[in-house]
């Protein structure tokens, strides 16, 4: 039973990462700007992160989808989500008004249009999914299970 819950959690997190990653790859310039407006990274790192993060998310989605290296994928998912939550909190604390660009989009918005609470809560929900998979990485219908058999 627990293994089946794990499968649902794993596929759920895979969908989240796939959606987040795919939404960001069509317009590299917009993805770079979404990173730039956090005003955390120096200009030289804006493009590598803007271009690379969506593919990191897609890679995590693929690993979780097939269930290969579920625990390590969940650990990296958790670390990435903590980084995102920290970045949003930092922007919020500095009084910058942006869209988090979590699922595409991003960039500056009017102060009334920010949704930091919702964005952080949502990411905390995803963090719980990652936590479950770190705790119980053995799931049904996974490559991990097939390799161990």
């Amino acid at each position: 039973m627990v293994a089946w819950i794990g499968t649902a959690v794993r596929l759920g997190l895979a969908v989240v990462w796939a959606w987040a990653g795919l939404a960001k790859i069509s317009d590299p310039q917009a993805a770079a700007q979404a990173v730039r407006v956090y005003r955390i990274l120096p200009e030289g790192l804006v493009k590598p992160f803007g271009y690379g993060l969506p593919f990191l998310e897609i890679a995590l989605a693929l690993l979780l989808l097939v269930g290969l290296g579920t625990r390590i994928a969940a650990v990296i998912s958790g670390v990435l989500l903590l980084v995102y939550i920290g970045a949003i909190a930092s922007v919020w604390a500095r009084g910058i008004s942006i869209d988090c660009g979590c699922f595409g989009g991003g960039g500056a918005v009017a102060a009334s249009q920010t949704a930091y609470w919702q964005e952080i809560l949502r990411d905390c929900g995803f963090l719980l999914l990652s936590g479950w998979l770190i705790w119980r990485p053995k799931t049904r219908l996974s490559l991990d299970g097939w390799l161990a058999a």
Partner: peptide, 9 residues
């Protein structure tokens, strides 16, 4: 993961 990120960039 590393291959995806490098190819992506």
């Amino acid at each position: 993961i590393a291959a995806a990120v490098v190819i992506g960039i």
